[in-house]
Design a protein around this nucleic acid. Structure first.
Lengths: 218, 218
DNA sequence: GTCTATACAGTGATAGAC
DNA sequence: GTCTATCACTGTATAGAC
């Protein structure tokens, strides 16, 4: 426990270098496109170091993911605590969705070297049904997401709980697909929608989703 | 040209058996989780047959995908031609979204042995930004999707084109994330939203999305 | 043309020496 | 703890049989 916590120790240096190299390479060329040998070469460590410190390539990915996900959860909860009904402020629902979505976009898409494609990584994990990935996402996001689900339900007291969950699910879909920025809409449309533009995406998403949430129940 | 078209020929039999086996195995265990040796063993053909007939594992996937995607496109265009404004019918926007979404769900999620997880496969491809996958999706869906994008824009004459494209993009996100059925919402909510239920999903999606499309432009 | 057997260069993982 | 050597396995390529 001591060695892994003390910054500057040989072990911590090795782990950090692996994480940095892996983040850069995964971002540049995707998960399957880069091998352990390339990661360890760039990090200047031995091939076996990855399996020694992380256990497997997949668990290296997990460590990488959790390191970037935590700030999102924390910022979400911080913003949630600031939401309140008051004259001159937007309606509660708008505040909640903004507080939920903004950290995912601002911290997930633009912060730091590996942030540029953390959104893509997250999107890939989010459409996978494999157990490992579900576990990673739950571990990273369940706490904050559940809090927002309940807050949205409270802000829409006339909407049955099942409908709230469905619409929340739809919101997750729009968020994740936008973060993935796959280029699909550019290929089908006239290029007027560019999901990579964070502020534009948020400004379009919130009114769209709020209108959907407020639709009469079926 | 003759041999590949005549059903029952030795070649057609081999190709068909590979496609069937690959569809089942990809569906069961994902794309990376199954090797060529397992596919060829189940199909009762030689290992090299895949590369001989398809060129690579990825192009096998492409053939598989296009085979199942074509009926979706055709059914969409058939339903689009039936949409019209008339007394006693739902508003045009509702008709359009229903015509766009229903074939993706009904043909993509439940028809045939490999249909059960064609939706998952499609979702995985849809969040990928790699060129091959973008090409596959364009080839499969651009014709029908573009037609619907224009029809929706015509049904919402007061909405700027950019806004239409953004909201259409959001719709794609809800559709794809629902088809992926990753289990995420069940893990965060109370299990009241089960994206695998096609009719329920459609009944919830259409009003939600129509309300979003009709939100005032920002 | 179709199919087979086999070889090849690459992967992630690991046992055991130091 | 770290490294070397090696393992079992992957997708792909090819030479040659039918």
């Amino acid at each position: 426990m001591d060695a892994i916590e003390r910054p500057g120790s040989a072990q911590e240096r090795t782990v950090g270098r692996i994480l940095t190299a892996a983040a850069r390479l995964f971002a540049a060329r995707g998960l399957a496109g880069v091998g352990l040998r390339e990661i360890t070469a760039e990090a200047g460590v031995n091939l076996a170091a990855v399996n020694y410190h992380f256990g497997s390539k997949e668990r290296l990915l997990e460590a990488l993911f959790l390191r970037r996900a935590r700030p999102i959860t924390e910022e979400r909860l911080r913003l949630l605590a600031l939401c309140r009904e008051a004259p001159g402020r937007p309606p509660m629902l708008e505040q909640l969705l903004e507080a939920f979505l903004r950290p995912a976009f601002s911290l997930g898409l633009e912060a730091g070297v590996d942030g540029a494609t953390f959104g893509r990584l997250r999107a890939r994990l989010s459409v996978e049904s494999e157990d490992l990935y579900r576990r990673i996402l739950s571990q990273a996001f369940n706490a904050s997401t559940r809090a927002f689900l309940d807050a949205v339900a409270a802000a829409l007291p006339d909407l049955p709980r099942a409908e709230v969950e469905w619409r929340f699910h739809f919101m997750l879909g729009t968020m994740i697909y936008t973060m993935a920025d796959s280029g699909r809409i550019q290929s089908v449309g006239d290029g007027l929608c560019r999901p990579g533009e964070v502020e534009t995406a948020l400004a379009r998403l919130v009114p769209f989703l709020c209108a959907g949430f407020r639709a009469p129940p079926t």
